[in-house]
């Protein structure tokens, strides 16, 4: 059973067919060719597939593809163009990525936090990325990078 879905992907309108039971993650990766959200677990446990749907942080792996009909879907690719997001710069400067697999989801989660809470406390940062696992960094550089951007955006 295939169903048409129409939505905006990083600002661009797209229309495609989805199989019944297909996840948004698989639709984005296999059909739209946006490989920036990653498959880490398929259970919502790791956050590597974090995307924004209508501005809300969501897990693409647990989202039934046809439910995004009419929605705005954003991946980390939306943040990189035309210029890098300050978070991306800060992640590079703070060594906040090693293998890089969790990084796209981590940055989407961090951006969502700063958009709604520009002056987060350290605990709020930890809470905001609590659904995003990282096995390499031990989180400290990631938290530092996010706090650095918050300080910079607020003072700017």
């Amino acid at each position: 059973m295939t169903t048409p879905v129409h939505f905006t992907h990083n600002g661009r309108p797209v229309s495609l067919f989805t199989e019944a039971g297909e996840s948004l993650l698989s639709l984005l990766r296999l059909k739209l060719g946006d490989q920036t959200p990653k498959y880490g677990c398929g259970q919502g446990g790791c956050g590597a597939c974090s995307v924004r749907i209508d501005g809300q942080l969501r897990l693409a792996c647990l989202t039934l593809a046809e439910t995004v009909d009419g929605a705005e879907v954003e991946t980390v690719a939306a943040l990189s163009a035309p210029n890098l997001d300050p978070l991306q710069e800060a992640f590079m400067d703070h060594f906040a990525a090693q293998c890089g697999y969790c990084t796209p989801g981590m940055i989407v989660a961090a951006r969502t936090l700063l958009d709604t809470n520009p002056r987060p406390s350290r605990d709020e940062v930890i809470e905001a990325i609590s659904g995003n696992l990282c096995r390499c960094t031990g989180y400290e550089p990631i938290i530092d990078a996010i706090l650095a951007v918050a300080a910079q955006e607020v003072s700017a």
Binding site: A20, G21, S23, G42, Q43, G44, L59, C61, L62, T63, L64, E66, T67
Partner: peptide, 21 residues
């Protein structure tokens, strides 16, 4: 929200055959 059901589908749980939206 599908947070339980979608995982079952990904892992091939044959009990889930019909989704009602």
């Amino acid at each position: 929200g599908g947070t339980g059901l979608m995982r079952r589908i990904h892992e091939g749980d044959q009990a889930v055959r019909h989704l009602i939206l």
